[in-house]
Design a protein around this nucleic acid. Structure first.
Lengths: 182, 182
DNA sequence: GCAGTTTCGCTACTTGAGGTATCGATACCG
DNA sequence: CGGTATCGATACCTCAAGTAGCGAAACTGC
């Protein structure tokens, strides 16, 4: 089956532009003040175009994060090495401009929005959880707990309080988590 | 100096009623849907009365949390015992109805609201941080990191995802943190 | 009792943000 | 050229935080 093109005017390829504008706006103004109107203006696009592609602000941010993170890099090695590199990779990503604030904001929006929660789970959380679960060979509850510790710490420090996480803190986090691996 | 009463009609003593109504409403509807109108209605009080006592919804929630948590119980013992009991106390408190959601919600509100951040810091965070710092005899950066790990994990698990934290998870968290104490 | 002051509940309002509806113009297919 | 779906632009709806103004009520001091 060749991917037959649907009829009608094709979508202009502005996804990457919108993602960039989103992260830039969130970085400059914070999640709340980064309104969809402002993001659209920053991307040089109409607000309706954004809502034609993503059903809500939270869905846009989620897609933006999925795009920004990309697949979890899993080099081979011991479980401690795997876990260590995954934590350092996540910490570095969350430190990039706008990412931490966007991450924390969309999580919060999702608390009282079941539809967004579904999107966030299936598109962002589940893939990484499953990849890590398979790589570590640990049971699901254990992996979920470790992810909560790492993501919770990173988000609380950088998403919530806005304070940067220094290398020593990342080292300490890695050591804490790696030590409890069997 | 006797505390001379100011002129005018004295405030009705409804703070406790409002706090209870706040936590109940947040527990039932979640942070976002727990609007000030609804909280006021649940407390049997006018919305203006609430805004006459607390400058914003976030400030109300903060006061509510300060009231709900109370002072950090610090029994004497080793640093490991102190830390362990503090974590278990925090985990138990955050599990009470409405507390976790209120905590996560006010933190998020504070991200883009400097005035609320100031309130949250001075009234809720600083007291516990200072108490723990003094009890443990650890440097500030170290205590801040450990608090981020514990609060981050608890908030991410219970405030954000809404999933309960089972005893095994609390045990694992305690062990992780206690192990890295010098 | 009465003037002064402050809180009370009530209602109406302002502001800002997420999201929707409509419309003429445009780009692609057959 | 007809059919279809996207484009930008504008206007609109809804809901929630927070404010303003009002008459009534509760307290103090004279």
């Amino acid at each position: 089956m060749a991917p037959t093109r649907p009829p009608g005017r094709p979508r202009s390829s502005v996804d990457a532009t919108v993602f960039a504008a989103t992260l830039r706006t969130v970085d400059e103004l914070g999640y709340t003040h980064a309104t969809v109107d402002r993001i659209a203006a920053a991307a040089g696009v109409a607000k309706t175009t954004i809502y034609r592609r993503w059903p809500s602000k939270g869905a846009l941010i989620t897609a933006c994060l999925v795009d920004a993170f990309g697949p979890l890099p899993l080099e081979s090695g011991s479980r401690a090495e795997l876990m260590s590199s995954a934590i350092r990779w996540g910490a570095a990503k969350i430190s990039e401009p706008g990412i931490g604030a966007a991450f924390a904001g969309v999580f919060t929006d999702a608390i009282n929005d079941p539809a967004l929660r579904e999107i966030l789970s299936t598109q962002l959380q589940d893939p990484y959880r499953l990849a890590l679960q398979e790589a570590l060979g640990e049971p699901e509850t254990r992996v979920l707990f470790l992810i909560d510790v790492v993501i919770g710490t990173l988000l609380h420090r950088m998403g919530m309080t806005g304070e940067p996480m220094v290398d020593a803190d990342v080292d300490a986090l890695v050591e804490m988590v790696v030590r409890v691996l069997p």
